[in-house]
């Protein structure tokens, strides 16, 4: 049985496990699961840019940081309720993405990769140097309030657990609709061959920019959750290594949403499982990263090929209407 055929059982199993998990695991592992959820959220948002549109983007922590700091500033200085700041954090990250991505969007693969790394570093240094006197320098911002939802105050681990994973669930559904839309198809086309896409009338620059803005919006909202969970944020939480982990989660996943979840569990859970190795745990983690890529270079679960039904009138040419062909058959 191939991993591909197990998608549905794995998804259902994962959903059930996630629902009942807080009943069986202790506070520590619950906290780890909240982290995993947060990274899953970030990886889903990066998946729009990197996985679906194929844009080499290794600077996602920058958008995450913009969202988290927007929430922190609005909450601590202007006393906005945390959850009210979420859309604004998303919008701030999206606007930031639009501003920085517009001039660099035409760069080819690896040039874009290093520029996005540069953006993370610039954002981190700007936060460190207390830009505009708002970000609190290297100490960051502390004393961010707990979120309240319909008068219900979210402060315990288990409440955050459900908040984060609900967001992951909603994101999964929304992105699923998106990938089946015209927009999703256009992004996939750009990933496969951007020149052909341009030739077929897809406005490549505009779609790439849209992917950036959408991914950044989601990362900004994840930033809100992170700020609310930690109550303290500092520039070092948004360094290059953070971007690397989100990047690696998406690449290991292979690009499908289920893959992203599994790969987030592997990436964030594995270092925790290796705690007993103390200092050697990151050594083993690095080795595991190499081994996983060598084992599955295409990623854990690449998205299934799109399938289309042949139109009714083609039956006269010997193809039965019930026949389903997938587009890989054409290219092979």
């Amino acid at each position: 049985m191939k991993l591909q055929d197990l998608r549905t059982p794995i998804s259902v199993g994962l959903a059930i496990v996630l629902l009942v998990l807080p009943l069986v695991c202790n506070a520590y592992w619950l906290d780890v699961c909240v982290s995993i959820g947060l990274y899953a959220l970030l990886a889903l948002s990066l998946n729009v840019i990197l996985g679906q549109a194929g844009i080499f983007h290794m600077g996602h922590a920058a958008f995450f940081a913009v969202g988290a700091y927007t929430t922190a500033v609005l909450n601590t200085l202007y006393h906005w309720p945390v959850l009210w700041t979420m859309p604004l954090a998303g919008v701030a990250a999206a606007l930031f993405a639009m501003a920085v991505a517009r001039p660099i969007i035409h760069l080819r693969g690896d040039y874009l990769l290093i520029v996005t790394i540069g953006i993370v570093e610039i954002v981190r240094i700007a936060l460190l140097n207390d830009v505009a006197g708002l970000t609190g320098g290297s100490n960051g911002i502390f004393g961010i309030a707990r979120p309240t939802l319909f008068g219900f105050r979210i402060s315990k681990g288990v409440q955050f657990y459900y908040l984060v994973w609900c967001m992951v669930g909603v994101s999964l559904l929304l992105f699923r609709c998106l990938w089946q839309s015209r927009f999703g198809r256009a992004l996939n086309y750009i990933k496969e061959d951007d020149i052909a896409a341009e030739g077929c009338g897809v406005n490549v620059t505009r779609y790439k920019l849209a992917a950036f803005v959408l991914g950044a919006f989601w990362a900004g909202m994840a930033g809100t959750v992170y700020a609310a969970k930690m109550t303290t944020i500092a520039p070092e939480s948004f360094n290059f290594m953070e971007s690397v982990i989100i990047f690696a989660v998406v690449i290991l996943s292979g690009g499908s949403q289920l893959g992203v979840l599994i790969s987030a569990f592997l990436f964030i859970g594995l270092p925790e499982l290796l705690r007993e190795f103390h200092d050697a745990r990151m050594l083993i983690f690095g080795f595991a990263m190499m081994a996983m890529m060598v084992w599955r270079p295409q990623g854990l679960l690449p998205p299934l090929r799109r399938r289309y039904r042949v139109a009714e009138n083609s039956s006269s040419q010997g193809v039965s209407p019930k026949d389903v062909w997938n587009d890989s058959a054409v290219s092979e």
């Binding site: 690449i251 080795f287 990263m289 060598v294």
Partner: peptide, 12 residues
């Protein structure tokens, strides 16, 4: 994929 392997090697 090779880039992720390189990042793993770097951590290692």
């Amino acid at each position: 994929s090779a880039v992720v392997s390189a990042l793993g090697a770097s951590i290692f």
